[in-house]
Design a protein around this nucleic acid. Structure first.
Lengths: 196, 196
DNA sequence: CCGCCTTGTTGACACATCGCCAATAGTGCT
DNA sequence: AGCACTATTGGCGATGTGTCAACAAGGCGG
C-alpha cells in the first residue's frame, strides 16, 4: 500500500469534494465516514483529523452547497416593482435549477431533525438571501428585525415552491415564476410597510 | 425487579408518549432508544418489539405531532374572500401556538437530512393542510395537481412564517396574521386561477 | 547519496447505539 | 394450585464513531 502525502489544503479539499458528492446523493444517516474515507482512498481517521466530527464535516458540506448561489446578485435590477420582481425571481430560479441536486440536498437538510447547528447554517444562508431581496426591491436601508423576518418568510416560500417544482415536478417553471413574482409584489406593497 | 405486564395497546401508548416528550425536547440524533426505554421504565428491546426500528418510532412520533392540528377545520368560514382568509389564518395560528413546542419539533424535522420516509410523513400532513385551504376558499372541487402544488407552497409559507414567529420571536402575531392573510388573498385571486 | 526530522497518515482500541432473539416470568384461566 | 399464553427481559453481534500513539513519506542538510 503506497500512501501519498498531500498538502493539508489539497487533502482537505479532496475529502470535502467526496463528502459533497455523497451527502448530495444520500441522506445524512446513510453516509458513513467510512464511505467518505473509502471513496477518498484514505484512512477513516484522517477524515476526523481534518474535519473533527462527522457532523462538522456535514456542516461544511451544507455550507458549501448553500454558498454557491450567492455569486451574482450584484447588478440590481432596474425598472418598476413588477419588473424588478420578475428579474429577481428569474435569477433565483436560474441559480437553483443549475445546482438543483446539491441545492435540494442542502435545503432538504432543513433541520436534520431539529439539530441546532444545521439550522444555524441554513438560517445564515436564508439571512443572506433575505437581505438580497430587500436590497433588490429598494428597502435595504438598515431594515428592522421585523422586516428582515418578513423577508425571511418570503425566502421560505421561494424555497418551498422551488422544491415543489424541482422535486415533485407538479409545477412548471412559468407557474413557479408567476407565484413567486406575484407574491413578492404583494409583500413589498402591502406587507413590508407594516413592519415597525 | 418487579416487572408489570400491560395490555399491548397500553404499553405501546405509554412508550409512544415518552418518545413524543423526548423527541420534542431534543433532536433525533440526541435521543437514544435507551433513553426512551429508561424513561418508560422498560427494557430497550421492548421499544423495538413494539415499534420496530428507531426511525419507525420517530415516524410515529412525527405523525402524531402533525395529526393533532387537523381537528377542527370543520366549519368552513363564511363571507367574502378577505374575511375567509382572516378566519383561516386565525384558526391556523391558534392551533399552531397551542401545541407550539411539538409542532415546532415536527415541522423542524422537515427533512431529517433528506430522509425519504420522514419527508413523506410531512408531505402527507402538508397535503391535508393544502386541501383544507383549497376547500376553505371554495376551490376544493377536484383540484388539478398544479393547483394542489400551489396550495402546498402556501402551506410552506405558513409554516416558515409561523416558525419565524414562534421560534425566533421577531414577528408579532398581528404581523404574521397580516402577512399570511394578505398573501392568501393574492394567491387565490392572482395565482391559483393560472393552474391549468 | 544517506540519515534525520517534520508531519501527513495510518491502524487499532474503547465506547456507544442499534436490531434481534432465545429465555424468563407475569397473569388470567381451568 | 397448576398451566399455558405471551408480555418482557437481558445479552449477543454488528455497525459506526472519536481518539491517539505509532508509522512512514518526502524534503533538507551534510
Amino acid at each position: 500500500m503506497r500512501r501519498r502525502r498531500l498538502e493539508p489544503d489539497a487533502r482537505r479539499e479532496q475529502i470535502l469534494s467526496v463528502a459533497i458528492r455523497l451527502f448530495g446523493a444520500k441522506p445524512y444517516a446513510e453516509v458513513s465516514t467510512t464511505d467518505v474515507a473509502r471513496d477518498a482512498g484514505v484512512a477513516r481517521g484522517l477524515v476526523n483529523h481534518y474535519f473533527g466530527t462527522k457532523k462538522d464535516l456535514y456542516l461544511e458540506v451544507v455550507r458549501v452547497m448553500l454558498t454557491v448561489p450567492e455569486t451574482a446578485l450584484e447588478q440590481l435590477p432596474e425598472g418598476e416593482l413588477p419588473e424588478r420582481a420578475d428579474s429577481i425571481v428569474s435569477w433565483f430560479l436560474d441559480v437553483v435549477s443549475r445546482h438543483s441536486t446539491s441545492w435540494l440536498a442542502a435545503t432538504g437538510a432543513g433541520g436534520m431533525a431539529g439539530d441546532a447547528d444545521v439550522d444555524e447554517v441554513i438560517a445564515e444562508a436564508v439571512d443572506v438571501a433575505a437581505d438580497g431581496i430587500l436590497r433588490a426591491v429598494g428597502m435595504g436601508e438598515e431594515p428592522t428585525p421585523a422586516l428582515r423576518g418578513m423577508a425571511r418568510s418570503y425566502v421560505g416560500l421561494a424555497i418551498w415552491t422551488a422544491r415543489e417544482w424541482l422535486q415533485r415536478g407538479v409545477l412548471t417553471r412559468e407557474q413557479v415564476h408567476l407565484l413567486l413574482a406575484t407574491n413578492l409584489v404583494t409583500m413589498v406593497k402591502r406587507v413590508f410597510p407594516q413592519a415597525r
